[in-house]
Design a protein around this nucleic acid. Structure first.
Lengths: 172, 172
DNA sequence: AGACAGCATTAACCTATGTTAAAAATAACG
DNA sequence: CGTTATTTTTAACATAGGTTAATGCTGTCT
């Protein structure tokens, strides 16, 4: 947890109101964020204006558009606060540079990336093999607290279905 | 590319016949593989015996059940040769240990994990926002050569639909 | 060539989810 | 409190994709 404390010390704290965006799809975003308090959603907006939620981000997590920050390209998604949030912001470059100096930071980075890839793999598996209602059950079992905090609209967008379909699924 | 040459030197070369499995879902798999030649598929088998393909692996790629190897848990997927393959095998532990000694190896690891996460993100995006036929178009545009080599069955399993549905999609 | 195996197509019918729109419930606010 | 917004439910219909099964195609072995 050297990394987290480095960020806490050297990053700049920002407050985000509910509904505000931390960064926006299509824009450059060179930072990485450590979530101190609050809850956020990372989401895509497709050409035809449809929103789909990539993930929900809870406190204690490090989040950022890694590829955007790393490759200096526009972010493919937006990050928005679902509640009032307190974040600590730091340029990814700074962390990467740091990791070049310190083995233990590198190692931590590797750990973070490995666990991120685990998360993505689970998600991929679910999208590929489970029906919408199975995915919903999964979410409810995995993180019932989170489900309580979310609006049905956002849950649906996360599951990849419409709120109407989710309402139907619930009544069974 | 220090990592690749380390693997090439210190790993053990194995040959896999078409149809053979490199490792199997449910088993431990502590190795990571560098694909020298050939083509493979990584796939899940669900409880009800349905197969879905996670990804196709072409030569030059490093593949393995990272989480299985790292956390010493059974792999969640199998790896099978679609053509006769030549691989170089090495324990992930050995690479992780190595990365603790060498900053440049750590850095390479980080690069690999970052690009892996980019790939997964694209896949997640597609599964979440595109229809089956859009996903098929995408695949055809991104890697037409690959599509030629694959059976329609495998393409369908990769897209998350049945071969019947894929056949329908093609005729439009 | 003939016989078989493995793929691909087609068709008929079924189910899950999308779409639109209206009604009902809940939350937010003066 | 009563009034507006916002979210959720319900209903009716449309569509994509699943299921099963039959048919056709291609290649391989003898």
């Amino acid at each position: 947890m050297e990394l987290q404390s480095y960020i806490a010390k050297n990053g700049t704290t920002i407050n985000i109101e509910k509904g505000q965006q931390v960064f926006t799809q299509g824009e450059l975003c060179e930072h990485v964020y450590l979530v101190k308090t609050g809850l956020l959603k990372a989401f895509y907006l497709t050409e035809n204006g449809k929103e789909t939620i990539k993930s929900f981000i809870q406190s204690g997590t490090i989040i950022g558009s890694l590829n955007a920050a790393h490759c200096q390209v526009p972010s493919t998604f937006s990050l928005e606060a679902l509640e009032q949030c307190r974040l600590v912001q730091i340029p990814l470059n700074e962390l990467l540079a740091l990791s070049k100096e310190s083995i233990s930071i590198s190692q931590e980075f590797i750990q973070i990336l490995l666990s991120l890839s685990l998360k993505k793999e689970r998600r991929e598996f679910e999208l590929l093999t489970l029906s919408a209602s199975q995915r919903f059950d999964n979410l409810r079992n995995t993180d019932p607290e989170l489900v309580k905090k979310l609006t049905q609209n956002d849950i649906a967008k996360y599951l990849g279905i419409t709120p109407v379909a989710l309402s139907r699924i619930k009544h069974q």
